[in-house]
Amino acid sequence: MSFIRTLHGDIRKEELGFTYSHEHIVCRPAFWQERGEDDLLLDDKEKSKLDVLDFKRHGGRAIVDATAVDYGRDVQAVQEIALETGIRIVGTAGFNKSFLWDAQIKEELKPLTGDYATYTQWIEAKSINELADFVIREVEEGLEGSPFKAGQVKFGTGYNRITPLEEKTLRAVARAHHETKAPIHSHTEVGTMALEQIELLKSEGVDLTYLSLGHMDRNPDPYYHAQIAATGAYMSFDGIGKIKYAPESTRIALILELVRKGHEDQILISGDTARKTYYKHYDHGLGLEYIIAKWVPRFIDEANRAGFDGQKLINKFFISNPANCFSFKK
């Protein structure tokens, strides 16, 4: 039996619908808050909700909120947005990357994490299995002690390196996955270290068809992508709209090259919209409507011109692939 766990309960995977696979909706990362980086604080529930409603108006049905505990989640606000908009939202248990862990742990998390000042101190002090138990509770009981359960587990690594603490959280997340059967998502910094992450997960006995790897378009290397795809993992092209990193033509070419090689069932698409300046209703950015309203028609046109069925591919990337990727298979 397969199901998807949303903040408001488990659903059949066929109910998920058109899905963005990696977004951030309301979050106040302590690391950025302590440094006065206001652009990286999505701190207004009503403005975030307006962007979610734009997505819904264009036919969107679900969003995977990839915000882990160390990135300043606001579980209450996000579940309220899900309830008030009717958009299904999948929450995330687990961890991000190590440089964020120097930030102060929120006071309300102290009863759950223990009385540690920073995330680094907490992760250093706990064993792999103790960290796994924390992740398991967030999947099976609720995020940050709430009744709203996570629908995926996450870890992250840095640019061209994996620190000992990042390996520790990776192994904790792998063990939580074995216990819960939750899908796994990884943060790769600028698309690096994916193959190294995969080797570590294999050493923990993880079936890689449960894994999605983020930020693949930040490393626009078709040979590298083919190596990753050969493992059976999902690949998330989640920088759509971020022209400062690459034009859309580059992303579309990378995606179509994977399709040519037979990997269309492993591709996910999203925007990782994590700044005020990316949101329409915070600061006049492209907003959550951009992919579904503007990028999708362009992709269909380019795919059709290249000899593919563009609409069929869109249905895979946004409907059937997320439904399969984010399923608990018990």
Rank of each mutant, 00 (worst) to 15 (best):
M1I: 09
T6M: 12
L7G: 15
L7D: 08
D10Q: 15
D10W: 04
E15Q: 13
E15S: 09
L16P: 10
I25S: 10
V26P: 09
V26C: 15
C27V: 04
A30L: 12
Q33V: 14
G36S: 13
G36L: 09
E37S: 13
D38A: 14
D38T: 07
D38E: 15
K49L: 15
K49V: 00
V52Y: 01
V52M: 05
L53A: 01
L53T: 04
H58M: 08
H58P: 02
R61Y: 02
V64F: 06
D65E: 15
A66G: 05
A68T: 15
V69P: 00
D70W: 08
G72R: 12
R73G: 05
D74A: 10
V75A: 15
V75K: 10
Q76P: 03
A77E: 11
V78N: 12
I81F: 10
T92F: 06
G94R: 02
F95V: 06
N96P: 02
K97N: 05
L100Y: 14
W101H: 06
D102A: 12
Q104Y: 01
E108S: 12
K110H: 13
T113D: 00
T113K: 02
G114T: 06
Y116A: 01
Y119I: 00
Q121D: 15
W122H: 10
W122V: 01
A125G: 03
K126E: 12
S127G: 14
S127D: 06
S127N: 07
E130M: 01
A132M: 05
V135S: 00
V139W: 12
E141M: 09
P147F: 06
F148N: 13
G151A: 14
Q152K: 11
Q152L: 14
I162A: 04
E167Y: 00
A172V: 03
V173H: 02
R175I: 11
H177C: 05
T180W: 05
K181Q: 14
K181V: 01
P183M: 01
E189R: 14
V190W: 05
M193R: 03
L195Q: 05
Q197T: 00
I198E: 01
S203W: 04
G205H: 10
D207V: 10
T209Q: 12
S212V: 05
G214T: 02
Y224H: 03
A226H: 05
A226R: 15
A226G: 07
Q227A: 05
A229R: 08
F237G: 03
F237I: 06
G239C: 05
I243A: 04
Y245R: 06
S249P: 01
E264A: 04
D265T: 10
D265P: 08
L268N: 08
T277W: 00
K280W: 08
K280D: 00
K280F: 13
H281I: 06
L288H: 12
L288M: 13
K294I: 08
W295F: 15
R298G: 00
I300G: 12
A303W: 00
G307P: 03
D309I: 08
Q311T: 10
I319N: 09
F328A: 10
K330L: 14
